[in-house]
């Protein structure tokens, strides 16, 4: 695939769909409640109004396609952290680590849920970060805002060593080991977004995770573009490490690449250098393909040995 715009648009659409899915799952409790209490569209309209009736009827229609609507609806649930869609479980690797650290054992369904995310990371690398992560949509828009504001203001571009995110992962696991409870809903941006959406739509309250989202957003705006994704998010670091030899990644046609151009390395939200054949941590967002003047970059399967640079090991 050569067009960076396609990647960008597809990534925005998929992330929007994930956010909408989270909102819908949080709102689905309402449908379940109506189904159990009334089981009748007219009664729903009388008790909750016309929009609710439409919501109820459409949801009923959709879930009826797969069998009993109540049972099918209850096959979905959770957040990006640990989610079931039509009965298929998906587990975050960090959540598996935390359960191992706290409980010293894992259920078989939980382990099976790891297959999907790990396979995705092994084939496409860190693709979770720019196609699925609900928080990265927020950070993406903040990086655009930052780019706009840079016309008038000066923001520094900080960089930390990438060991910091490993440290966050180790620190969170140590908290699990030492205290027997996790603090991941404050540490992980996508979990915090899930909690905030769920608290807001299902209970109508403001989750404490919202404040960690605010902190992450401020860090993103002031310290660097997608600062959280690069240096603070332990999941991104872990997935980047798992997918460091991913099958599909960004590929450069060396003869067409310009020397001293550096446009791709400047635009890259993960601050990797495609012009030096660096592929670790690439989330396939496609920004470098847009700015490349000779269009020598493409997303393609990479077979064979990879160059290892100092940056890619960090």
């Amino acid at each position: 695939m050569r067009s960076g715009y396609t990647c960008l648009i597809v990534s925005i659409i998929t992330r929007l769909m994930v956010v909408l899915l989270l909102c819908y799952l949080a709102f689905m409790t309402e449908y379940l409640n109506f189904k159990l209490a009334h089981n009748n569209a007219r009664l729903v309209e009388l008790s909750a109004g016309k929009p609710m009736r439409i919501f109820y009827e459409q949801t009923e229609k959709f879930f009826s396609m797969f069998g009993d609507p109540l049972e099918t609806a209850q096959k979905n649930g959770g957040m990006t952290w640990s989610i079931r869609i039509m009965g298929v479980p998906f587990t975050d690797p960090v959540s598996a680590i935390s359960v191992l650290a706290k409980n010293h054992r894992m259920e078989i369904g939980f382990v099976l849920g790891l297959i999907g995310p790990l396979a995705l990371a092994l084939v496409f690398g860190r693709v979770f970060c720019s196609y699925i992560c609900s928080a990265s949509l927020l950070f993406f828009s903040i990086s655009r805002l930052r780019r706009l504001l840079l016309k008038w203001f000066y923001f520094p571009e900080w960089s930390l060593n990438r060991g910091f995110a490993w440290g966050v992962l180790i620190g969170g696991t140590l908290v699990c080991l030492a205290f027997g409870h996790g603090i991941w809903s404050l540490l992980l941006p996508y979990f915090a977004v899930g909690q905030t959406v769920f608290h807001g739509l299902a209970f109508g309250t403001l989750s404490v995770s919202f404040f960690s989202i605010v902190v992450f957003s401020i860090a993103d705006l002031l310290l660097g573009k997608q600062f959280t994704c690069r240096y603070l998010c332990p999941t991104g670091r872990l997935l980047g490490w798992i997918g460091r030899r991913s099958l599909v990644s960004i590929r450069r046609e060396a003869p067409r690449c310009l020397e001293n151009c550096n446009a791709c390395a400047d635009i890259c939200p993960m601050r990797i250098k495609p012009n030096q054949d660096e592929t670790v941590d690439c989330s396939l967002c496609g920004e470098c393909m847009i700015v490349c003047p000779t269009k020598c970059l493409s997303i393609a399967p990479i077979i064979g040995k990879r160059k290892v640079t100092a940056g890619s090991l960090k």
Binding site: N33, L36, G77, S82, S98, V99, K102, Q195
Partner: peptide, 23 residues
């Protein structure tokens, strides 16, 4: 507390809307 990951699936499928999550 050790086993719960806080994924909120129980609150999500509760048709009675009685389960809520702690802050």
């Amino acid at each position: 507390i050790k086993a719960c990951t806080g994924c909120g699936q129980c609150a999500n499928v509760c048709p009675n809307k009685c389960i809520s999550l702690f802050g």
